[in-house]
Amino acid sequence: MALPTSSVITLHINGEKHTLPVDHRTTLLDALRERLDLTGTKKGCDQGQCGACTVLADGRRTVACLQLAVAAEGREITTIEGVADGGRLHPVQQAFLDLDGYQCGYCTPGQICSAIGMLAEHAAGWPSAASGDVRPAAAAAPLTAEEIRERMSGNLCRCSAYTSIVEAVARAAGADAATAAAVVPAQSGEAVA
């Protein structure tokens, strides 16, 4: 007997339920873009190698291209279309807009969703590869420019708006002062932690 290769699933996206039949091969990314007209989530590589399709799944940043839609059933998905509070931009969105944290804009939804997830990870005390001492007794790593860069490295920007993206993330984090101090070029390089 042939095995079933499609299912009717219910996805929870930006607070709304969407019930639809999906081919099991359909990724969450293609379900959003081709089935639900939520095209803010971008397809940059479709291989988990660029971050353009970053969404939040149960609050955690995830690449939608490697997430099968059928396996996303039961998870609360937030896409770029769902991060603003009605007409009021999310602080990360506002900072990207004000500080020109993009150029072509194609990686931008992924950068913004990634930044939102990343700030929550940092607030939860998660260390990063830039944190040096990872032991819990060590002081929690402040959100320096170096920390932001390492934590955001899963999001490529070929226009290379990296410097203004980092400034925007820092501003949204309310870390302006600390980060600004950290990114001013020093005599022999950069005064990062």
Binding site: G51, R61, L66, G117, A129, R151, M152, G154, N155
Partner: peptide
Amino acid sequence: RRRYPVLAQAVLAGASGQLRNM
């Protein structure tokens, strides 16, 4: 992190934040 910092560091050196979440 307390008992095996090398393991936390190795994991953090891999992939990206998104991929490590998955």
